[in-house]
Amino acid sequence: MKSRLLGSTMEVDGQSTLSLREFGCEQNLLSRPDGSASFVQGDTSVLAGVYGPAEVKVSKEIYDRATLEVVIQPKVGLAGVKERAREQCVRETCEAALLSTLHPRSSLSLVLQVVHDDGSLLSCSLNAACMALMDAGLPMGCLFCGVTCAIDPDGLIITDPTAQQEKNSRAVMTFAIDSAQRRVMMSSTKGSFSVNELQQCIAVSQRASEKIFQFYRDSVRRRYSKTL
């Protein structure tokens, strides 16, 4: 067990630096939703809009917390199984972060529109969702961000892969990481990998999440720089 562990840390050694593509965010860009954000990672771009807390349909009412609905709109065609799966990932992450008990019997709806998909789409959706929830001013226990890691056929880890890199890789993993303790809130994986690789990817994502949280902090600071 020990030797295997050492062997795999050597692999990370081979690429001592991992990189995230350039990322950017615009908040409050739509007039209708209560909160909106567009998040760009390289060429991947997702637009998010949040409505709520608002009146809820009786059939969807939950007596002790708010009902969260997540809709992901693909760019071409109608939403299919893939989108439903992503919706669930995003919804469960948001439910874990949001303090929905503060708004019982109300509805929150989060709509994500894929604007361009060039890899790491789920992590970009998570980031856009978090920025939009922040913009809407909804109470959250912690922030969250998404990081996608791909393992290429040589066993090297690539963070924030492009669509081409995702296609060539052996495994793709996306983690949602919370800002309070850098814990994994959600994971979605594709392909095969070893336990060690998974743990390394988690460690890498936790590292990368610090950059994204710093970005969140900077953008909020910039946004309120005139009012504070």
Binding site: T17, S19, G24, N28, S38, S45, V115, R207, R223, S225
Partner: peptide, 29 residues
């Protein structure tokens, strides 16, 4: 669209690609 983002707006922030140093993170992992 990334290029057409109005960078001068106060609600917009862009960051150039970030490097994640894994040298000390190895210990972490």
């Amino acid at each position: 669209f990334a290029e057409s983002m109005p960078v001068e707006r106060i609600t917009v922030l862009k960051s150039d690609g970030a490097q994640i140093e894994m040298s000390d993170a190895e210990v972490g992992s």
